[in-house]
Design a protein around this nucleic acid. Structure first.
Lengths: 351, 351
DNA sequence: CGCGCGATTGCATACGTATGCGCTTCAACG
DNA sequence: CGTTGAAGCGCATACGTATGCAATCGCGCG
């Protein structure tokens, strides 16, 4: 008998020991099992015992140790939320909605911010070490990591991404359809010289938006008259718009692949080139981020239905908790066209 | 012997069992202790054993179970980040910086978003259940909860808040000094009719900014000529500015307690009242949030030194991990005046 | 070649809780 | 009053890892 029971280790105990279920059991005169059942919804326990235990627990200021619970039950009730580049004006709202809904579902959010220049694969091992019950992410992971999650039975939901080759469900705003509606709006307003400021090359979202827009243009017999990359950033888009609109045969309408770039384009038009919006040039964006509503921009755009998307993501995740098969559902949700004053809606009266 | 060792429980095993340190030990032909030491930095282990173990671990695709590690070591390496109302334009950047720095320090972020209308005290028990090593928050908790954390040895760092009566360190931008510099700037530019759009009544930050501004005004012999609440929101501030600037004897300068309200005020001045900024009215804000740099606003404001504040917060937290005494350090960091074009900087040439 | 000492290693235990199983209790029913 | 069954309870064990202690190994020195 090297180390008799009851004699605590020495190096331990750096922090005040909090009461355990054993302490509560002792005080309440019941077994530790009873205490556990008292705090397990749906467990078999009498009302009398429960109240005795609750009283003791309150006196000792006891709360169940979620970590120990996780270890034995195999369920952590933690969801890993893995986001690249939180500063993008769109993610904060996502994270806000997401955390509220997950909390409401009794789940905790373990947040992983993938630093610029790093891949999601680099942080994935860390996520898995914490035994998360599921993962919500808007980044692409490698097939190896995907298989890893599948093997471990950790469901993944891709947010605004879709990777058919990877295991996991996905929730997406229909970027293609949204961009097409903007194309329709511009053409219906009589625009024929239409320019585009695109997002980053590596962003599937940006790609979808561009594709949806250009395809619809083509289908209606119109070609882009200008294109530049804006990287989803204000400054780059503003510079791009400035040079585009400075040309002699300039576009009379501009589609920007997100709102932030549209703000840059509007500022370029007004302040750098001296054009009026929408009288000289119509400008539309995508996202309906906060400043779109501001009087200084009043941007026509497509709103991503955040609430619906987030609700769907949480729903899909919770569903797959039961099924190890992971049915891999796909949800495609339409965005909502928000017409404001940054683009004219009808051809000019006289031509 | 009710349940012989080795016979696994039935209800368990809903997910694929991942390899454990025991599996790795068996494959590598060493003890489980050796595996543990192999993954514990600084532990005593020979190079030969380490490589054997690493090979076995790789074959089994093993990674240590952070939850089990937490249970026995008493340290989770998880930090609870408790934020109210993430949508505030300022918090996303905070969260971004914070998560990056905590991750860099080997810590995980368990995010708690306090829903509107709920108190931080309501979520604190949940935070503590997960055995977090520390807490960073920008909300006030009750004395009871504070004492609770102290007793459990969980250090708290208040971010941009300071509660002398509560245990815990704090990091704060010097709101008072920053607002005073804005007051100086306006007075130096010759403004004497100065209005203020305040933040929410329950926000200490808003309160500090107002106090700092008004005190400096007084000290230099100037009184506020108008005041209204803007609740940190664009729409409310815009309406307030509209009515303020519509008066016959209107202010010729406006201090808004945050940037978002300043944008509302600028839009009100230009579009609702028809005044030029800064020729007819100077407008200043506080935060230096993204749109401040945009050409459409180009706002004179005070930048909160996010990087420094965040670094300090993480540093204070990590420091207190060792000391159960929790020295409760206070860091006050000055903001940086950012002069742009929304406020004139010198008295008009002729009067 | 023997000794001594530091570096490694293995053994055993502990962390706090969930849960299968068997026993007890108790109420309902005939 | 005996029988039956369900509900409640306690016992014992398991989850996966860290760590004190003792035993062992390996190496240098005399």
């Amino acid at each position: 008998m090297k180390r008799p029971t009851g004699k605590p280790a020495k190096g331990r105990q750096r922090r005040a020991r909090r009461a355990t279920s054993v302490d509560v059991a002792r005080l309440a005169g019941v077994s530790q099992s009873a205490v556990s059942r008292c705090f397990t919804p749906g467990a078999s326990i009498s009302e009398k015992t429960r109240s005795k235990i609750l009283a003791a627990a309150q006196r000792l200021d006891y709360a169940p140790n979620a970590i120990a619970r996780t270890l034995i039950s195999g369920r952590s009730r933690i969801v890993g939320v893995v986001l690249p580049n939180i500063t993008n004006l769109f993610y904060p709202e996502v994270l806000h909605e997401l955390s509220l809904r997950l909390q409401a579902a009794g789940l905790r959010v373990l947040l992983f911010n993938v630093p610029y220049g790093q891949q999601i694969d680099d942080v994935m091992p860390d996520v898995l070490q914490y035994q998360v019950d599921g993962i919500i992410t808007s980044a692409r992971c490698s097939a190896a990591v995907g298989a890893d999650c599948r093997r471990r039975g950790v469901p993944i939901v891709f947010y605004n991404r879709e990777f058919p080759e990877l295991p996991g469900s996905s929730v997406k705003c229909n970027q293609v359809a949204g961009a097409a509606r903007l194309a329709d709006l511009l053409i219906d307003a009589g625009h024929r010289r239409i320019g585009l400021i695109a997002g980053p090359d590596n962003s599937p979202t940006a790609h979808d938006r561009e594709r949806g827009f250009v395809q619809r243009l083509r289908a209606r017999g119109v070609d882009l008259c200008a294109r530049a990359g804006g990287d989803f950033l204000y400054d780059i888009a503003r510079a791009a718009a400035r040079s585009m609109l400075g040309q002699p045969r300039r576009p009379d309408a501009l589609f920007c692949a997100n709102d932030t770039m549209a703000f840059g384009a509007m500022d370029a038009a007004r302040h750098d080139v001296g054009l009026a919006v929408p009288d000289d040039v119509s400008i539309v964006g995508f996202d309906d981020s906060g400043p779109s509503r501001w009087r200084g921009y009043d941007l026509t755009t497509v709103r991503q239905p955040l609430e619906a998307m987030t609700a769907a993501a949480v729903e899909l995740l919770v569903q797959s908790f039961g099924q190890p098969g992971m049915p891999a559902a796909r949800r495609l949700i339409d965005g909502e066209l928000v017409v404001r004053s940054s683009a004219r809606v009808a051809p000019p009266a006289s031509d």
